[in-house]
Amino acid sequence: MASNATTAIKERTPRRVLPGFGLTLGYTMVYLSLLVLIPLSAVFVRSFGSGWSHFWEVVAAPRVLASLRLSFGASLIAALINVGFGLIVAWVLVRYTFPFKRLVDAIIDLPFALPTAVAGIALTALYAPNGWLGAQLAPLGIKVAFTPAGIVVALIFVGLPFVVRTLQPVLDDLDQEVEQAAATLGASGAQAFARVILPTLWPALLTGFALAFARAVGEYGSVIFIAGNMPMKSEIAPLFTKLEQYDYAGATAIAVVMLVLSFALMFGINALQNWTATRHGERR
């Protein structure tokens, strides 16, 4: 082995001190392509295979638009509610102590761990007119199961951990000295919150919101049991119905729309997280 040549090579490419780059990157790319990229492309190929005009015809049909509006609308509302209550929960977990706090903290992750179908039947059982909660709400004229409200409830469940878990570290990290300074300068609790804490929090709030929203949009298992399925009112993505009608071009067209929107969301979230982190970097 010509040691001079090897040393020279090593100096030019310092990253290759550790072996296995080619192997691991190659394997990663192959696995990723075979299992994710190529299968996903099948949706796009199939849907555009029937032509652009058919694509628009399917996607612009009122029922499809109504269901997309419902999916995105319900997800939006659920994500907003999660932001509101998530902030309270995160605040309480970070700032206060109370009995069983560790247990409460652990249970936040339940929606991550519980299968969606289980959540679906449990929520339907709870909110149906004869369920524990549904029975309490019925006399008040509030119907939850089989209405858009039921869908929102299911989506609150699935999105809950995202906001709390995004906010907790940021709240944890807050320098309480600034708040205390504000207090000594005469700011009330609410003012201190609005002027001092909220500005630091809002990137995390935004990220948590976006994550909860993205998660909610794609949700199926927990919603399908509780949704009323009424066309134009409480029907989530008629993707499934199109599939059952052997309408592949239609099903894939809807899938393409949902995928494009979800990917856009995801890239947006990643960009947001990058921007947030850089912002924090600048602060230091």
Partner: peptide, 26 residues
């Protein structure tokens, strides 16, 4: 590198029914 990381995250953005349908298409 960051493009690769985003690609790895893609399945998170795909609705489960679409995920199943993909394999039927193939």
């Amino acid at each position: 590198k960051s493009a690769l990381i985003t690609l790895i995250d893609l399945p998170f953005a795909v609705s489960p029914v679409i995920a199943g349908m993909i394999f039927i298409l193939i």
